[in-house]
Amino acid sequence: MTISLHQRSVASTKGPNRFRRETGGTKPPRRIRKLLLLGGLLLALFAALLFFGLVFYGSHLAKQQPAAKASALAGKPAPTDPDKLQKANATLTKRLAALAAKPDEPYIVVDSALNRVYWWQNGVVLREMIASCGTGNILEDPASGRKWVFETPRAERKIWMKKAAPVWMKPDWAFIEEGEEIPKDGSGRAEPGVMGDYAVAIGDGYYLHGTLYKRLLGRNVSHGCVRLGDDDIEFIFKTAKIGTRVILF
């Protein structure tokens, strides 16, 4: 190993452009010297920029500190007495806990990103269901200037109505989407079977309901409602009560 290293070293010093510093030999060619100089200059410029960046950053921090301190403590006037603050915090924690679901109270969570519905009870998910949530598409009617966004809402709602064998009352957008004329009265709007066997209303025209398009479960294809498979919507219909929370995000 030693021999091979020695041989390599000897061989390399024989190169025509080798700069032998220790013997005061020939200088590197002009081109290399220029490159080295340019590299050194760039490095110096970069170091200077970095230095000034850090200096300015430090001064910026020093300026920010009092402002941050003042504004963090601003806003709603909070008590300045530590005892009062501790009591106020304890009261707020209790009030917040009162708004949360009781341990045995079931609630439904709809994850519109993953197209999943979860049945929560006692702090665990008891049932996971595949759903179809809103497409997020926008429908604009140039004639009337109306606009619809087919999104599943993001809010906490409650079940306020349950329907077996629901009939879909076709809204205006459904007619516009299909290029049909909007009926002046209620006739021609009723479409039985489209919403499956069961539906539960969560307000503002949004429902959790069954679907004819089961192969599309797991995709965002609805107009904002939450579509579920037959077994899952039956489970919700039979298990959930009026007033059960539905948390959609």
């Binding site: 008590p79 707020l92 924690t93």
Partner: peptide
């Protein structure tokens, strides 16, 4: 810290 906690809770 207590003040910030109060703001957050509120």
């Amino acid at each position: 810290d207590l003040t910030v906690k109060n703001t957050l809770l509120q």
